[in-house]
Every structure is written in C-alpha cells, then in structure tokens.
Design a protein around this nucleic acid. Structure first.
Lengths: 348, 348
DNA sequence: CAAATAAATGCGACCGTTACCCGTTACCCT
DNA sequence: AGGGTAACGGGTAACGGTCGCATTTATTTG
C-alpha cells in the first residue's frame, strides 16, 4: 500500500480510453511521439529509428491498440476485401472452391467475405449491393448471375465462376465438355454402349456437360445410343430420372449423372430395383465432392480442380484490380476422372 | 509555356467524378439540395418532403450513387457487421447453422461475414484479429476456441457455439446428453442391449455425448454393456472404430456414432464384413446432416436444430450488443431423433 | 567547424459520412 | 396578424487513419 492509489493524478483527468478502443492518437501520446510516426510503425515503414519503433510498439501493446481498418480503408480508398457470393453454402463444391480462393487471396494480402445468395435472385442482388456499399475491392460470383451484374461489374472487378457466355467479365470454368467426354470414354473402354445421361437443371453447366456427352458418344459411333433424361441437380431428381431410365425397355448399362448428388439418387434407384452396381449398371458422377469419396458410396466421378479454380479466380481478380482496363479473359480448367467402385465392365 | 490558361479550364479544373465513385456531395449538387438533406433521405428520415426525396433519389439513381458504408461506419462507430468463424466450411452442419444465423441477423439489419479457421489455431487467431480490426459489432465462434478468445471477448460481444465450460461469454449448445439418450432409448426400445459407442475427437461435444450414452445405459440397467471405442469425427475414423468393434468377440448389435460422418464410416465397415444393416447391426448417427438423408445411406440420426441454434446465437448477440454488461447466458437447444433405415429390432 | 546532406519526425489537410446547431423560409392554425 | 412548426441550407466538428510536405535532428563532408 504505497501512496500510489491516493494520487489520481493525470490519470483521472485523462480522457477515458478504457471504455472505447484506443486510437492511434492515444498510442502516440503514450509513446511521446506524433501520430504520423505511429502510423509509420504500424505499417512497417523502414524509415523509423529502432528506439522509437520499440517505444511505439510497447505503447500499442500496453494499450491493446488495434489499427482501425475502417478508417484506414476510408482514406486509402480501398478495403482489401473481396466479396465472394455463392448460391448456397451447403454445396460441398462451393466450400472447397472457397478454400482455394481464400488461400490465394490471403497471399495477396486480401481478405474474403462470404455471402450466401440462397438461390434467391432478390437475396443475391441484395448481397451484391451490400458488398458494393462496403466498397469491396473485387467480387467473385459463383453459380450466380444477378441481374445487377452489369452494374456491379462497372464499379468493381468481377470474376464469374461456373458460368459462361457472359460478356464483359472475367470467367473461370471447368471444361465440362472434356469432363463429360472423360466419363463416356471410361465407360466405353469398359465395353458399355448403352450409356444414358441425366441432364442437370437448365444452366450453362448442364448444357455443356450434355454437349460433351453427345459429342463423345458420336466420336465413338454411338450417336444412336444417346439417351438424355431430363432432371435437375438434386438427389431426388437423380432418383426419379434413374428409375425412369432403368424401368424402360432397353435398359442402359451405364448412367452418366450431371453431379454427385444426382448419382447418389441413381444409386438409390438401383438399390430399390434390385440391380447391382457396377455389375448390372455403372454409375458415374461429376464434381468428386466428399460424397463420392465416402466408402459406402464410393462413386466414380469427374473431378473439378476446385482449389485450382479458386486460385485462378484470385489471380484473375488481382490482375484486373491492378489493370481495370485489360481485356476480359475466360480461363478453362481441366477436370480428370477419379475411378471408384460404381463403374466396371459391362455385365460384371 | 505561358499559354496554360488557354486550356479548357473549367473542365480540367472540375473534380473528376466520372472516374471515381460519386459522393453524397455530387448527389446534393445534382439534386440542387444540401448534403445534409441527401444524408437524411439516404437514411430514410421522415422529416423530408416527398418532392425533395424524389429529387434526391432521382439524382442518386442517375449518378449511380451508392452510400459509402466505410465512411458511415467510421462516423457511426459501428459497422453492422457480424463475424462468423467456423472451423471449416465443408461440414454441412456449419453451413446450415450459418443459414439460420444469417437469416436472423438480416432481420436485425446486420450482415454476416464468414471466415474459415481451417482447423488451424494460427489461422483462427488471425481471422479473429482481422474481424476485430474490421470493427465487427459481434463475433460468433463455431467449434473454435482461439487462444485469443478472452482478448476478443473483452473488446466485442462474442457468442460461442458448440462449446461449453468457457467462462465469460454467451454460449449456445445442443443438449448432447439428451441427444445421446434419445439414441440409446430408441435402440433399447428395439431390444438392443449390446450398444457400443464410438467417441469423437477430444472436445466438449464428444465428452457430453459419451456422458449421455453412459447415463442412458445406466438408466436401462446396462452399465455392464457399456463399450466405448476411441475415434474422431471423420469417416475413416468411423470405419476403423467400427471394424474394431465388430471383429471382437461379443459383437455389439448396435453402434451409436458421434456424428453422421463416423456413422457412414461404420456403414462401410459393416458392408465389408458382410453384415446386414439393420438386421445384424443397427447404426445411429448424430447431426442429421444431408448425408443422413441420402436414400442410399438413409441413416437414423439425432437432429440438432441448426437453424434454431443460428437464431438463438443471433438473439444472444443482439441482446448483448445493446447491453454489454448483462450477465452471460448459456442456451441449450433440444435435439430430436430422426428414424430412418439403419436401425431396427435386434436380430432383424 | 560550418555547411551540406540525409534521416527521422511533426504538422495538417484530407477521405465520405453523420450529427449537430442556427438561421431562414413557407405554411398553417387559431 | 402573430406565433408555432415543419422543411431545408450551410457550416462545422468529429470519426481514425494516411500521406505529402515542412521541420527538426543526426551524420557526413569540405
């Protein structure tokens, strides 16, 4: 008990800074320097003497100072934030893509904000608007083409993922035609001829996968065997479509599904009909999500290099940020086939 | 070069506003009003005449004006942003929780930023730090307890999800003991006695689920039948643990897994050992993720009300934001059982 | 040792908003 | 006619930083 506590000297008079967060000014005051110097130290400038740097760092530590990114963004005119909008967070494909994106952005000193459009165009437009108001430095749109796209693209760099045939923005897509072709080639190599395709919900992706399927069939002289069953991207859709395909005359010996979820639906249909996989019917999915990897499913699937796609999207974005006027690019990434237990020689 | 003044002065001197984004001043100028009025209109103040409001809105539209959230946040001292940090985006449980959270936050005029900790404590701490620098108004930590938690909690409201026994922060958890009990009761009702449990990776969640399992077994007078196999939360872990359980003497007739992924791993093990589900062995998961709902898996599982949890987290956060000093709360949400095809009477 | 040069630091104008205050106008109501 | 009120203009002070430039201090040079 020294007399310390009885002497509320300058402390009591000082502006309360314990309640609200300490600012650069508080740090400067405490370290006995100007706020400019604190700013320099915080940004790691080399033009600061070691003595002052330590003093500033010490003061900052003691005060629990944290630079205010809001204020910094305002004066710098940029936020170092990238908005990523996905149709929904549940799709494992999106999650892995976001991982790749985040990783690459991190290397560039950028941070990623994730928004979910929840398959609702209104919600998507609103999310884009919010990102724009936040003054993100760039936007990555995944399986989402909000009506406000053009407007957004005019005020900030935008990269579109998984869509095509959209003008004026950078795009990164999987080569769906090639992917479909890989699937068909694999099945043909196993002696399959009656290979049916379930088509995904109307979208560029579904269109290109179907086109790739048809082209590959034609290349193998199997154009007359082409069967396309309409469907969507859900498990239930896959179940229904597969049921329809397998209960008609001339049952196909193989089914190429537009994604893994649909393929698992098809798997359920074969279960129910008492058909063995792959002996009676081979099934092949697309995306190679974690679903496909589950042993109990063990689905042969076309893998999209999601992480690569994330990386490519990041690099497109960065290059456009530094040169907003460069011509638009469309980057195609290459899929490959992952063979598991749902495909095999025809007849087992 | 004295001819300078002959240059097209007014143009060259005028501030460029076509290049950079229009500000509130430009709008005011164009609408022929003061910037204060524009500010009022933008914030939807009722003290503005309809005529002026329309004029301002029109000018804003023509200019493509978008309020600058950065500047607004700076002066208001808050961002209306909530940071949500999840261990990884792949876990479907997290995705659904985030949906519920986003929905509720949206109703409060708050926006959600998602960050991924990627199971790396360093990355998690960094993400928290970034959120704090961004001056988020609140933080939701999901299956993540960064070392920096205490520091974070002292500078911003924090809600913890899926963890317990952490002091000084609001918490929302599923009643894991009850969930485990539901699973055991269901199995006992089907005549099972030798019910084994695979334990998840060390965590509060795994601990409570195990405790619930043991308590329920005791309640049914089956304490001597308790078998706990160590494991983790992965599919592979489930596969290995189930294999071990099913190849020992005194094979259990039912397995209670700590989550759905582990349950699917167990399913693979039964496949491989030629055991039928549920005739030879019943399997029950936890979380009721979309995995469980897939027909081909059709897993009986304990459902956590994820959306409710998101909602509760949002409400905890909001109430703490408006009263930072209120006492901490721990909200328990109630799980329920979803019966599917992997459980049935013992012996078929 | 003074002068020149370089390095370290302080000063103050911004960035785009909000939130005041005060003065002015126009209109409405007894 | 007078007084109250709602709508608006214009000004100014924040908010917490960054950055160019002026100023001080340290170091080298002739």
């Amino acid at each position: 008990m020294s007399g310390d506590e009885s002497a509320p000297r300058s402390d009591a008079m000082a502006p309360r800074q314990s309640a609200s967060k300490p600012t650069i000014r508080n740090v400067a005051e405490r370290a006995g320097v100007s706020k400019s110097l604190v700013s320099l130290v915080m940004r790691g400038s080399p033009h600061v003497s070691e003595r002052r740097r330590q003093a500033v760092l010490k003061a900052a530590r003691e005060l629990g100072y944290r630079p205010n990114a809001v204020a910094r963004s305002l004066v710098e005119g940029r936020t170092r934030l990238i908005g990523a909008l996905v149709a929904d967070l549940h799709n494992p494909f999106f999650a892995e893509f976001l991982d790749g994106l985040q990783e690459s952005l991190h290397g560039e000193g950028l941070r990623m904000l994730v928004g979910s459009g929840r398959w609702d165009p209104l919600f998507e437009a609103e999310a884009v608007e919010a990102f724009l108001e936040m003054r993100v430095d760039g936007l990555v749109l995944l399986s989402v083409v909000p009506d406000s796209l053009q407007e957004a693209a005019s005020s900030v760099p935008v990269v579109l993922v998984g869509e095509r045939d959209v003008e004026g923005v950078d795009i990164v897509v999987d080569d769906d035609e090639l992917g479909a072709s890989l699937a068909v080639d694999h099945l043909v190599a196993h002696g399959h001829r009656r290979i049916a395709h379930i088509e995904g919900a109307p979208s560029a992706t579904a269109r290109y996968r179907r086109a790739g399927y048809e082209a590959a069939m034609a290349r193998h002289g199997l154009s007359d065997q082409v069967v396309v069953e309409p469907g969507d991207f859900t498990e239930d859709g896959g179940y229904r479509a597969a049921r329809a395909l397998l209960t008609r005359g001339e049952r196909p010996t193989a089914i190429f599904a537009p994604n893994d979820l649909v393929a698992t639906g098809a798997l359920s249909a074969t279960d129910e009909l008492g058909l063995r996989v792959p002996q009676d019917v081979s099934i092949i999915g697309y995306d190679n999500t974690h679903l496909a990897a589950i042993r109990h499913i063990s689905l042969t699937s076309v893998d999209q290099p999601r992480r690569d796609m994330g990386r490519v999207a990041a690099s497109l974005l960065c290059s456009r940020i530094e040169d907003p006027s460069r011509e638009v690019r469309q980057e195609l990434v290459l899929p490959h086939l992952v063979v598991r237990a749902t495909t095999g020689p025809v007849g087992g």
